[in-house]
Design a protein around this nucleic acid. Structure first.
Lengths: 204, 204
DNA sequence: TTGCAATATAAACACTGTTTAGTATCTTTG
DNA sequence: CAAAGATACTAAACAGTGTTTATATTGCAA
């Protein structure tokens, strides 16, 4: 049944066309400015057609979120290959913050918006990519705790601690709360704060 | 001119009525579910009337944000009266996280949403309440650095460090990212992570 | 009483996500 | 080959959103 297969492929192609348009428009107008009607207009189909390929807008945002994790992996490549656990944590932190600052809209979908999460709830899915990232960090923390004989014993608490640090830093920077309390030199402020965070845990 | 004054008062009263309705509706439907038309309906005026008292929706959200800081002050009362700088930081951290977890919508307006900030930009206002909070924290940090002879020398970097920690923790909790990586026992996870953050800096 | 200023609003504009009912095309079957 | 059926698509509607404009009503001063 080569014909049925071709139909499948055509269907997948349009689904992909929608996602590519969604991505393009999100990068142009931000996640707030992304709308089903704009996507439909962009690919020259009617808005209703989108709903033949996606349950709702949340599902589209969820798929974009998954694309975001692929993008983030590139920022983590140095960490993935680093042998020393503590240096790996430093590289994760730096990669995470760099990714967040350079990809505001992707970051928002992955770590702030509750819309892709609603889709996960609705469809009883897992937050696979996020879990993978967190587990990678937690495992690295476990190693670091052993290597340095840190007083922090629970690697998952330490991972949560680290994640909160960098997540807080990135979101405060993104929502312009940093610039408003400390005008100018945003870049160096962020770098110095990140250093402070890592040093407080590992450099003793 | 007692009459002109009464008019002024009447005008202020309707402005307040709008804000009270906005507050009530935000607490009922969340900040996402708050709309000009709902406010108008609630106070039995037309939507257009709102625009005689507020420039736009962002201005209303900005005024709600200011109310939020008043609310937050109550969570900080213990910190405000504590003499010891380090213990003051612990109390600030605990109050901040408690406030964030118990007042999701207020917190969102104050520290996440960019809509009240847009109003600040448009009207070249200052983020007064936020600045006050940050300065209070920074001053406390300065004291703590002196008292404990901490290796962290810049109190504003340390303040940013602390703020990022608690902000990250609160927002990860609010957006259900914590529950998804570590199901159950959310409360204790948060407490333990907050402890880990404070200990890493001060307990050495 | 006339005229002006203040106050409020109906209606419109340009959007949003989503659903429904209907059409047109393409495939399979008798 | 024609009829029947499945598939792909869409126009139009529904129920919302923020905001603006032109109009009407009200109350006060001259």
């Amino acid at each position: 049944m080569g014909l049925a297969e071709r139909k499948e492929r055509d269907k997948a192609e349009l689904k992909d066309l929608i996602l590519q348009a969604a991505k393009r428009l999100m990068l142009k107008d931000g996640q707030e400015g992304l709308s089903i009607r704009k996507i439909a207009n962009d690919i020259e189909y009617s808005p209703a057609t989108i709903y033949l390929y996606f349950k709702d807008k949340d599902e589209i945002l969820h798929e974009l979120m998954e694309m975001g994790f692929l993008k983030m992996n590139k920022y983590m490549s140095a960490a993935f290959t680093e042998q020393d656990a503590v240096r790996r944590i430093y590289l994760i932190g730096e990669g995470y913050v760099k990714f967040g600052l350079e990809n505001k809209d992707w970051y928002y979908l992955m770590f702030n918006s509750d819309k892709p999460m609603k889709h996960i709830e609705k469809c009883r899915e897992e937050w696979d990519e996020g879990m993978l990232m967190f587990d990678f960090l937690a495992n690295t923390c476990k190693e670091a705790i052993q290597n340095l004989s840190l007083k922090f014993k629970d690697e998952r608490i330490l991972a949560l601690h680290l994640w909160s640090c960098v997540h807080g830093l990135v979101t405060l920077a993104q929502s312009d709360r940093i610039e408003i309390v400390e005008a100018g030199q945003k870049e160096s402020l962020i770098t110095r704060t990140l250093d402070s965070m890592l040093i407080s845990i590992f450099d003793r």
